[in-house]
Design a protein around this nucleic acid. Structure first.
Length: 794
DNA sequence: CGTAATGAAATTTTT
DNA sequence: TTTCATTACG
C-alpha cells in the first residue's frame, strides 16, 4: 500500500488518492500521467473496488497496452477493462446489436471499405459526383456522425450543394451498411451513443456496470465519445479524465477541445489536479516547446517546469534539399551509433506527412542504420492482405457485400464487370444481399448460362470454406489460401512484387498463429477480424526493437526518445497548407509541433530543406512560421545558423528585439546582388562537424566558400536572404502567396506592421486584407504583387 | 472477359 | 512521383 505512493509527487499523489467523484487531471507532457492513471487504478483496487467496475478508455491500442503492462506490475492478475474507445464500443455493440438494427456478427469497415460502399451508393443513386470527391462526402458524413447527427436527423445547410448531396447519400449509405450488417469506424461510437441515449434501461445497466471510468487523452474526445462517457457517469459520476488541451491534435477528426476546456462546467464538484512538472526533457527543450505553445489563444494556461539539466541548445539546420536533409541526419545518427554514443532506438525522426518518409528510408538504408517506419501504408491495408481478409470477413458475415465484391473475381475466375452488374441489379430489385443473389444466379435476368455456372461455382466455394471455418484462425486462413488458389497464383508469378505479397501473406499467417496461441483455442474468427480492423499502423510500432523510429508527428504522441529530429519545418507542411486560413486549425498545427518537440528527452534537432521536391516539382520552401515563435535564447546558435548560411546576410545583432524578424530582413536584404546557389548549403560535412556554436558558425561560414557540392540548380536564381525566407522558385521576385495566412503579422515597407485579417483567392489572385497598426488602417493587397513580408510576433 | 496502356488526378493527420 | 481509373485492344 505504501508502495503505491512511493516516489509520487504531491500533485501526483493527490490524483491517485482521489477515488470518488469527477476528477480532471491536466497533465503536461512528460508529467507522469500514465503513472498516475495506473497508480490510481491500483489504488481503487486496493480500496476494494471490484476490477470489473473499472473501465479505462484510451485512443490507441498502444496506450492501452502500455497501461495494461504498467498496471500488471502494480496489481498483477487483475482484469480491469482497459481498451480503446472503438474496441470498447465494438464489444458493447456485439452485445446490443439487435437494438440498433445490426447482427452480432457485424463487420467493421475500414476507411477503404467505407469508401467502396459509398461509391456504390453514389452510383446507384445516379448522383453526379463530378464536383465532389467521395472523400469530401465521406468527410461530411463522418463529421455528422461524430456530432451525433444520424441519417434521419441530417438537414442540409441550404445553399450548399455538397450538403444536399450528402442529405441524399447519407441515408442510403447508412441503409447499405445496415443491410450488409456492417459499421464504419464512426458508427461504432454513434450506435453506442444512440443506444445509450434512447434506451434508459440499457444506459442504467451499463452505468452501474462501469462505476469507475477513466478517459485518457480527454482533449481528443469528440461529441459522440463525450456523450458515451457522460451517459455512463450519471448515477456513478466517478469519471476521471486526463488530458492536455495543448496536445489536442485530432480536431480534424471531430475531436472537440471544448470537452476538456469545459469539463469543470459539465461535471459539478470536479476536482482538478495539474501535473506541471516535466520529468522527460531538458530545460531548453521544454522552454522551446513552451514558448511555441504560448502563441495559442485557446488554451488553459499551464506553467511547465522541470528540474532536469539545462541540456544542449536546440539545434536548427537548413539543408539545401530534402536529400541532403535526410542524408545528413542519417549520417549523423550513423556516426554516433558507430562511435558507441547511443543506440539506434534512442533516435526518432518526426515529419508532418507520411510522404516525407521516403527520403529518410533511403538514407538510413544507405548508412546501414536499422530503422522502422511507422507507416501510413499499413500492413492490413495492403491489397493481398485485404483480399485474403475479405474472404474471412465474408465467411463470418455473408451479408457483407463490400467484401463479396472485392473477392468475387480475385483471383480472377472469369466473373466480369457485366456479370457483377447484373447480379447487383438482381439483388437490389429483390432486396437481396449480393451473395444471396449469386446463389440464385440461374434466375438472374440476362445472365448467360456460362456466367451463371461460374458464379455458382464461386458460391459453392464460399460454402465449402464456411463449413471449414471452425477452429484455429490459422487453419481457416490456410483453407482460404488453397481453396481460392490465391497462394498458387502468387507462387506462379515471377515478379518481385508478387513475391513480396507472398511474404506478406506468410506474415499474416504468422499473425493468425500468434492470435490462436494467445487465445488458446477459444478464439473466434470474429475476434480476429475485429482485432485486425481495429489495429492501426502505429500499433505495429515495436518499442523493444533497436531501431531508429520514423513516424508522423501524430504518431509520436505518447512516446519519448532521447534524441528527436523534427524535419521539414516548412510553411505548407507545418503548418499544413490546408490549415493556413483557419485560425483554429493553425492552432492545432502548433499543438502538433508542440507534441513533437516535447517527445525529446535530451536532444532536439529541427530542420528544413531550402528546396523540396513535391510531386515531381522542385519548389523553394518558406520556413515554417512556427520557427519564428521559438525563443532565441535557447537556440541562438540555431538562428545564426540559418542566417549565417546565406551569403551576404549580416548576422542579426544579439540585442535585436526578440521576435522582430523584420529587422533581420532589413539587414540581409542590404546587398542586393549577391547570387545564391542553394546547392552549396547544408552539405553533409557541414552538418557532421557541428557540436558547439562557435564551431558551427565557422563551419557554416566555410561552407559558403566551399562551393558547389550538390547538383546544379536549374531554377530561377535567387538573390538575397529575404528571398530565401519568403520566395518560391516560381515567383522569384515576389513572395509566395502560400506563405501568408490569416492572423499573420506582416510588414510593409511604407505602412509598417500589420496583421492579415482576411484572405481570398488563390495563386496569383490571392488577396490579403491587412489591418495596419498605424497609418492607413485597412488595406487590400494582391499578394504576388505586394511588398508584404512576414513579421512574426505576438 | 482480361490485360495492357494511356491519361488523369491527387496527395494530412487515424480509430 | 505515384496511384488510380478509364479505355482500347486482344
Amino acid at each position: 500500500m505504501d508502495d503505491l505512493f512511493h516516489g509520487l509527487t504531491a500533485a501526483q499523489r493527490e490524483a491517485v488518492e482521489h477515488l470518488e467523484g469527477p476528477l480532471l487531471i491536466l497533465a503536461g507532457p512528460g508529467s507522469g500521467k500514465t503513472r498516475v492513471v495506473t497508480h490510481r487504478i491500483a489504488n481503487l483496487l486496493a480500496h476494494g473496488v471490484p476490477s470489473y467496475q473499472i473501465l479505462a478508455l484510451t485512443f490507441t491500442n498502444k496506450a492501452a497496452e502500455e497501461m495494461r503492462s504498467r498496471l500488471e506490475l502494480l496489481a498483477p492478475g487483475k482484469r480491469v477493462r482497459l481498451s480503446t474507445f472503438h474496441r470498447f464500443c465494438a464489444r458493447l455493440l456485439r452485445e446490443f446489436a439487435q437494438q440498433v438494427g445490426l447482427r452480432e456478427n457485424f463487420t467493421i469497415y475500414d476507411t477503404n471499405d467505407s469508401r467502396q460502399a459509398l461509391r456504390r451508393v453514389i452510383n446507384e443513386l445516379n448522383i453526379d459526383s463530378t464536383h465532389y470527391t467521395p472523400e469530401q462526402i465521406v468527410s461530411v458524413i463522418s463529421k455528422a456522425k461524430n456530432n451525433l447527427v444520424t441519417a434521419e436527423q441530417f438537414v442540409p445547410r441550404s445553399g450548399s450543394p455538397l450538403q444536399s448531396i450528402v442529405a441524399k447519400v447519407y441515408p442510403a449509405y447508412q441503409k447499405k451498411l445496415l443491410n450488409s450488417s456492417a459499421v464504419d469506424f464512426d458508427d461504432l461510437l454513434l450506435h453506442v451513443a444512440v443506444l445509450l441515449r434512447d434506451n434508459p434501461e440499457v444506459r442504467g445497466e451499463l452505468d452501474a456496470r462501469y462505476q469507475y471510468i477513466m478517459v485518457d487523452e480527454y482533449q481528443d474526445t469528440n461529441r459522440a465519445q463525450y456523450e458515451i462517457v457522460r451517459a455512463l457517469s450519471v448515477e456513478h459520476p466517478n469519471l476521471a479524465a486526463t488530458g492536455d488541451p495543448d496536445q489536442s491534435i485530432y480536431g480534424w477528426r471531430g475531436a472537440d477541445i471544448n470537452n476538456i476546456l469545459d469539463f469543470e462546467r459539465d461535471f459539478p464538484n470536479v476536482h482538478t489536479v495539474r501535473l506541471e512538472q516535466n520529468y522527460r526533457s531538458t530545460k531548453r527543450i521544454l522552454s522551446v516547446a513552451a514558448h511555441l505553445i504560448a502563441y495559442n489563444q485557446r488554451r488553459k494556461r499551464k506553467e511547465l517546469f522541470t528540474e532536469n539539466d539545462e541540456g544542449a541548445p536546440v539545434r536548427f539546420v537548413r539543408y539545401a534539399n530534402q536529400q541532403v536533409e535526410a542524408e545528413s541526419i542519417a549520417g549523423r545518427i550513423a556516426d554516433e551509433v558507430r562511435a558507441g554514443r547511443r543506440r539506434p532506438r534512442d533516435y526518432a525522426v518526426f515529419y508532418r506527412t507520411n510522404a516525407l518518409s521516403r527520403e529518410f528510408e533511403h538514407a538510413f538504408r544507405a548508412h546501414g542504420v536499422p530503422f522502422q517506419i511507422v507507416n501510413g501504408l499499413e500492413f492490413y491495408q495492403r491489397k493481398e492482405i485485404k483480399d485474403v481478409l475479405a474472404y474471412l470477413t465474408l465467411i463470418n458475415n455473408p451479408r457483407d457485400d463490400v467484401q463479396l465484391l472485392r473477392v468475387i473475381n480475385t483471383p480472377v475466375r472469369g466473373i466480369g464487370k457485366t456479370t457483377i452488374e447484373r447480379l447487383a441489379r438482381h439483388a437490389s430489385q429483390r432486396g437481396l444481399t449480393m451473395l444471396e443473389a449469386a446463389r440464385e444466379s440461374g434466375m438472374v435476368a440476362d445472365l448467360p448460362k456460362k456466367a451463371a455456372i461460374t458464379v455458382a461455382k464461386f458460391v459453392a466455394m464460399i460454402d465449402r470454406l464456411s463449413s471449414l471455418a471452425t477452429g484455429a484462425v490459422e487453419e481457416i486462413l490456410g483453407h482460404v489460401l488453397t481453396e481460392t488458389e490465391y497462394r498458387e497464383r502468387l507462387q506462379e508469378s515471377q515478379t518481385e512484387e508478387d513475391q513480396e505479397r507472398l511474404a506478406n501473406i506468410e506474415e499474416l499467417l504468422t499473425a493468425a498463429r500468434q492470435f490462436d496461441e494467445r487465445h488458446a483455442g477459444l478464439a473466434h474468427l470474429e475476434e480476429f477480424l475485429e482485432e485486425t480492423s481495429l489495429t492501426g499502423d502505429t500499433d505495429a510500432w515495436d518499442d523493444r526493437a533497436d531501431r531508429v523510429t520514423l513516424m508522423t508527428l501524430h504518431g509520436s504522441k505518447g512516446l519519448e526518445f532521447p534524441v528527436v529530429h523534427v524535419v521539414a519545418l516548412e510553411q505548407g507542411l507545418i503548418p499544413h497548407e490546408r490549415s493556413q486560413n483557419q485560425p483554429d486549425e493553425l492552432e492545432e498545427e502548433r499543438r502538433l509541433l508542440f507534441v513533437g518537440l516535447t517527445r525529446a528527452e535530451e536532444e532536439l534537432h529541427l530542420s528544413m530543406a531550402i528546396a523540396r521536391e513535391f510531386r515531381g516539382q522542385r519548389k523553394f520552401s518558406v520556413p515554417s512560421s512556427f520557427l519564428f515563435e521559438l525563443p532565441r535564447e535557447e537556440l541562438d546558435m540555431v538562428e545564426q545558423h540559418w542566417v549565417d548560411q546565406i551569403p551576404g546576410a549580416t548576422i542579426a545583432d544579439d540585442h535585436a528585439s526578440t521576435d522582430e524578424v523584420a529587422d533581420e530582413y532589413r539587414h540581409s536584404s542590404g546587398d542586393d546582388d549577391v547570387s545564391f546557389d542553394p546547392a552549396t548549403f547544408g552539405t553533409a560535412e557541414d552538418d557532421a562537424v557541428v557540436d558547439d556554436a562557435k564551431q558551427e558558425s565557422n563551419d557554416a561560414a566555410n561552407s559558403t566558400a566551399r562551393r558547389p557540392v550538390g547538383p546544379a540548380w536549374h531554377g530561377a536564381p535567387l538573390k538575397t536572404a529575404a528571398d530565401l525566407l519568403t520566395t518560391e522558385a516560381t515567383a522569384p521576385n515576389a513572395i509566395s502567396p502560400d506563405a501568408f495566412y490569416q492572423g499573420m503579422l506582416i510588414k510593409h515597407p511604407s505602412y509598417g506592421l500589420g496583421r492579415i485579417v482576411a484572405l481570398s483567392g488563390s495563386g496569383s489572385k490571392r488577396m490579403a486584407t491587412v489591418q495596419f497598426v498605424s497609418g492607413p488602417g485597412q488595406k487590400k493587397f494582391v499578394l504576388v504583387q505586394s511588398n508584404l513580408r512576414p513579421a512574426q510576433g505576438t
